[in-house]
């Protein structure tokens, strides 16, 4: 079956260009979850469908950010979002982030595949030289995800985020193109 707005296809997930129809489902509600907001360092503020639609419109106009939906290949259910932001065409770099909002799909496999697909796309198709991510020190999930895919830890920002009443450190991970192209974690795109 043809997948709507399919952009990058993997084995169990595909990355799609989000549409207004995606906003109407549970996407907006992930950002009413205190734990998700805390872990991604987002300001704890209510989010509605119309806020999410406005956000999507803003992202679409903004060419320094690529936002994609993470969807299950079998049933096209949107389980999360993944992005490359701060796209810098001079330095060839960008910052990645990923959220799996649907708790039923938080078993690690989908996040791993989605990040591998995005890394491959960013470094080989967008011709970026470096992708980095910033994650709270307490977010062990994100650390493991980056480490397993061969990203390296490059530094710690002290007390950079306010988390549940205290300031906590965040860690920067990065992957360079020269290292990724030698990696055995590189996926092949299913739509090629």
């Amino acid at each position: 079956m043809k997948k709507k707005n399919l952009f990058i296809k993997g084995s169990s997930v595909y990355l799609s260009y989000p549409s207004s129809a995606d906003v109407g489902k549970d996407w907006y509600d992930w950002f009413n979850d205190d734990e998700i907001n805390s872990l991604v360092g987002k300001y704890p503020w209510p989010n509605s469908k119309s806020d999410q639609k406005k956000y999507l419109d803003d992202v679409r106009r903004n060419k320094d950010r690529l936002l994609l939906g993470v969807k299950i290949l079998k049933n096209s259910k949107m389980i999360g979002v993944i992005s490359l932001s701060k796209l810098n065409s001079h330095h060839r770099s960008a910052e990645s982030s990923i959220i799996i909002g649907n708790s039923k799909y938080k078993n690690g496999i989908y996040a791993l595949e989605a990040l591998a697909l995005l890394t491959e796309f960013g470094l080989t198709r967008l011709n970026l030289n470096r992708i980095f991510s910033s994650t709270l020190l307490i977010n062990k999930n994100a650390h493991n995800l980056n480490k397993i895919l061969g990203w390296r830890k490059v530094g710690t920002c002290k007390k950079s985020h306010y988390y549940k009443g205290q300031y906590v450190d965040s860690v920067i991970y990065e992957i360079l193109k020269e290292n990724w192209i030698k990696s055995n974690k590189r996926p092949s795109f299913g739509n090629e």
């Binding site: 938080k106 078993n107 690690g108 791993l112 999930n141 493991n144 995800l145």
Partner: peptide, 11 residues
């Protein structure tokens, strides 16, 4: 079998 435990398992 959540994200954290699975990624720990692979590692």
């Amino acid at each position: 079998w959540d994200s954290l435990n699975f990624l720990t398992l692979i590692s």
